[in-house]
């Protein structure tokens, strides 16, 4: 590089690998990248725990094949959300907690447990487990996710287009999920027709918003 011509690099010195311009430009626009990163960890903690809990909820929709299919879509898409955002956390110089218990503790949404107590032998007591109760757990989990990703959209709008793009894609799918479970719960519990107005996913867990323009092959 010419000695007369300084490298234009803002607050990060040329060749300095201890800082990331990708983070500093966010700070310059008024968002604390460390605070954002921690919020992202909480948010994908919820996506990850939801993926886990939805596995169990899906299993307990025994015999309700249509409900299982929809729950499977939501389950796989929540995992896709986790995988979509993980690289962003590392870009912002963070990492996943080493202890998965910490990850679950800080998840921004409640555990979506099967709504029934355990029986005396350590299994689920399914004697009074109702389909509508499972659907309500699923619905409220989606509503929490909508609130979380809306907060992240608010936080990043106009300051961090990369994170905003991810968050709004995820938010699109969480809103789909809420509509699905409103439709199913309305019919199951209240015998009301309350259409989601959606067509089926192309394949299970298709994630048309968050993976239709992939950030990487695993997301």
């Amino acid at each position: 590089m010419s000695d007369e011509k300084e490298h234009g690099s803002g607050s990060v010195a040329p060749g300095d690998t201890s800082k990331r311009v990708g983070a500093e430009v966010i700070r310059e626009r008024g968002v604390d990248p460390e605070e954002l990163r921690e919020k992202l960890i909480d948010a994908i903690g919820a996506e990850f725990t939801t993926y886990y809990y939805y596995t169990n909820l899906r299993m307990h929709l025994a015999g309700e094949e249509d409900y299982k299919e929809i729950t499977e879509d939501a389950r796989l898409e929540d995992r896709a959300h986790f995988e979509l955002v993980v690289p962003r956390i590392y870009e912002l110089e963070g990492s996943l907690p080493n202890d998965i218990r910490d990850f679950a503790d800080r998840a921004s949404c409640p555990d979506a447990e099967v709504p029934t107590p355990m029986d005396d032998s350590g299994g689920f007591d399914t004697s009074d487990l109702a389909v509508e109760d499972i659907l309500e757990v699923l619905l409220e989990a989606e509503r929490c996710a909508i609130r979380t990703w809306s907060e992240i959209c608010d936080m990043t709008r106009g300051a961090d287009p990369r994170t905003y793009d991810m968050a709004q894609r995820i938010l699109n799918e969480e809103m789909d999920h809420e509509a699905w479970f409103i439709e199913l719960l309305s019919k199951e519990r209240d015998d009301e027709i309350n259409p989601a107005g959606h067509f089926a996913r192309g394949e299970p867990g298709d994630a048309p918003y968050s993976t239709n323009n992939r950030f990487n092959d695993s997301a």
Partner: peptide
């Protein structure tokens, strides 16, 4: 606010 379910 975030979760609005008394969790976060």
């Amino acid at each position: 606010a975030d979760c609005q379910q008394g969790w976060c």
